Each structure stands twice: as C-alpha cells, then as structure tokens.
Computed example of a mutant assay.
Amino acid sequence: MASKYFCLVLTADGLDELGPILKDYLHEGQIGRYLYCREAEAARNYFHVVAEGPKEDGPTVESEAFIPHSFVKIVISSPDRKHIGFL
C-alpha cells in the first residue's frame, strides 16, 4: 500500500500534447482530466511520476513518466486516496 497518493492535473497545453499518449492513464473528475499517481517527484529536470494503467487481461501495470514542469498545473497529495477530494 502506498504511504501517499498523488493526483497530477495537467495544463491545457499538457493535455493537448500528452493526452493522446496518456489516455489510458487519465481519469475524469469534477475538475476535468487528471493522472492518479503512486509516486510524484518534482525535484528533477522533468516531473517524475509513477502511474497505474489498465492491462488488457485485467490487472494494472505500473509505468513511469517524465513530464515537463510547464505541463503540470497542480499536484495534490494525501495519505488517504478519498481525501484528495475529486477521485
């Protein structure tokens, strides 16, 4: 179990450019489309995230992504997924 949960909201430009690539990982909520992450780290040249996406046979697969900082609108974290507010 993760010690923290992260939600990464991309900017409009980020969604335009990365949306087609991340489509299997994006979720829809009250604030629009977001990326649910098990890990998120901004202290690199790119924003590093570890996200879960669906596999064709049922379980999820974990993937890493490196996203330009200019594409990140906000990151919300919480020790409990339900406290993020819009998941």
Results as ranks from 00 to 15, higher is better:
Ser78Gly: 02
Ser70Glu: 15
Ala2Val: 04
Cys37Ile: 00
Val49Tyr: 01
Cys7Glu: 08
Arg44Asn: 10
Glu17Gln: 14
Cys37Trp: 02
Tyr46Phe: 12
Pro54Val: 06
His48Ala: 12
Pro20Val: 08
His27Cys: 05
Pro59Asn: 15
Pro20Asn: 02
Ala40Glu: 05
Gly85Asp: 09
Gly32Tyr: 03
Arg38Met: 07
Leu18Met: 13
Glu28Tyr: 05
Ala2Asp: 06
Arg33Val: 03
Phe86Pro: 01
Phe6Glu: 04
Glu41Gly: 03
Leu15Asn: 08
Val9Gly: 00
Phe66Arg: 13
Pro59Val: 08
Leu18Thr: 01
His48Ile: 07
Pro54Ala: 12
Glu64Lys: 08
Pro20Tyr: 01
Lys4Ser: 06
Val49Ile: 13
Phe47Asp: 10
His83Asp: 14
Phe66Ala: 14
Lys55His: 09
Gln30Thr: 10
Arg33Ser: 09
Leu26Gly: 09
Lys73Val: 00
Asp24Leu: 09
Val49Gln: 03
Thr11Met: 05
Lys4Ile: 02
Leu22Tyr: 02
Lys73Asp: 12
His69Glu: 13
Arg33Thr: 02
Pro79Asn: 12
Leu18Tyr: 05
Asp24Arg: 14
Lys4Gln: 12
Val9Phe: 04
Lys82Ser: 12
Asp57Tyr: 07
Asp13Asn: 04
Glu39Trp: 00
Phe6Asn: 04
Tyr34Ala: 10
Gly53Ile: 10
Ala42Gln: 12
Val50Thr: 15
Val49Lys: 04
Ile67Arg: 04
Ile76Gln: 11
Arg38Lys: 03
Lys4Gly: 01
Ile74Glu: 15
Met1Arg: 07
Lys82Tyr: 06
Phe6Pro: 04
Glu17Cys: 07
Ile21Leu: 09
Ala65His: 14
Ile21Pro: 00
Lys82Glu: 13
Met1Gln: 06
Gly29Asp: 11
Leu87Ile: 15
Leu8Gln: 00
Ser78Asn: 12
Arg33Gln: 15
Val9Cys: 06
Gly32Ala: 07
Phe86Asp: 12
Leu8His: 01
Phe66Gln: 11
Ala43Gln: 14
Asp57Asn: 15
His69Ala: 12
Arg81Ser: 09
Asp24Ser: 11
Pro68Ile: 07
Val75Lys: 07
Gly29Ala: 14
Val50His: 01
Asn45Met: 03
His48Glu: 06
Leu35His: 06
Lys82Val: 04
Thr11Lys: 02
Leu26His: 06
Tyr36Val: 02
Ala51Met: 04
Tyr34Ile: 00
Glu56Lys: 11
Asp57Phe: 08
Val61Arg: 15
